[in-house]
């Protein structure tokens, strides 16, 4: 590690002032690799959130403690109860969109550190038996050099269990919500592990419609898992 230096913001590369350095002088202060200016451009998701998907609730678009999207999922017999809860850290605003694009499409691996501590906080709060990244296809993994979801786990100092593999490699981002929901299963079990009664925490970069996470959840529940939670950087 001696060949790398951390005194600069990982996002904007400006030098960081002492009080905002990544080491965080005060107990409990989050360890982040980015400066306070960049940090301020990240909008945390907070307030009243949907019990399942964790989005901020809008009183016009919710039914009790669920957002209307989750209401629809829960009304569908195939999908009801697949996902127990999701926590997303930040709103997917323009700044985060650019940062995540640089992270996964340009392959700027080190940006995982910006989010790792926040992810770790969630992992501490939600008990689980396995920590499972949403997998990439072999081609995509080679192309990017790393799996952006797995990197979040590793940079949070945790161990990733690769329970899932991808059988479909088409890009999700080009599909509409309807397409995504009615997609045939894109995942398969990557290895045999006794999952009966286990709690699994899935990790992904972005929660958009919730379809990816639910497809993964379905496979794992089918293999016996009792509870599926998930954490993503953005939604």
């Amino acid at each position: 590690m001696g060949m790398f230096s951390q005194e600069r913001c990982l996002i904007c590369h400006e030098e960081m002032v002492a009080s905002a350095t990544w080491r965080g002088v005060f107990l409990g202060e989050e360890v982040t690799g980015c400066c306070s200016r960049c940090l301020s451009k990240l909008e945390a998701i907070g307030g009243e959130t949907c019990r399942i998907c964790g989005r901020e609730l809008d009183s016009n678009f919710c039914k009790e403690d669920l957002c209307l999207d989750c209401v629809r999922w829960e009304e569908d017999g195939d999908w009801a109860g697949m996902l127990d809860s999701n926590i997303s850290l930040f709103h997917y605003n323009d700044f985060l969109r650019e940062t995540i694009a640089r992270y996964k499409f340009r392959g700027d691996y080190v940006l995982a550190r910006v989010f790792a501590e926040k992810i770790e906080e969630v992992l501490r709060k939600v008990p689980h038996d396995y920590l499972v990244p949403i997998p990439l296809s072999e081609e995509r993994l080679y192309e990017r050099g790393f799996n952006q979801s797995e990197a979040l786990i590793l940079e949070a100092g945790r161990e990733a269990t690769l329970l899932l593999a991808r059988i479909h490699s088409e890009k999700q981002s080009k599909k509409s919500r309807k397409d995504r929901i009615h997609l045939p299963q894109v995942f398969t079990l990557g290895r045999n592990e006794e999952l009966t009664g286990k709690t699994i925490m899935l990790v992904d970069d972005i929660y958009t419609t919730g379809s990816t996470i639910r497809h993964a959840a379905k496979i794992l529940k089918g293999a016996g898992a009792a509870r599926i939670h998930s954490v993503t950087i953005a939604r």
């Binding site: 060949m3 790398f4 005194e7 600069r8 340009r106 700027d108 790393f146 799996n147 590793l154």
Partner: peptide
Amino acid sequence: TWFAAFHCHRCNEECAYCRRCLMMGR
């Protein structure tokens, strides 16, 4: 300050990369 490293699935090793010209491909 413009370099970082990661475990790379292309070479299966710890692999340093340049962040300075990253926008033109890593």
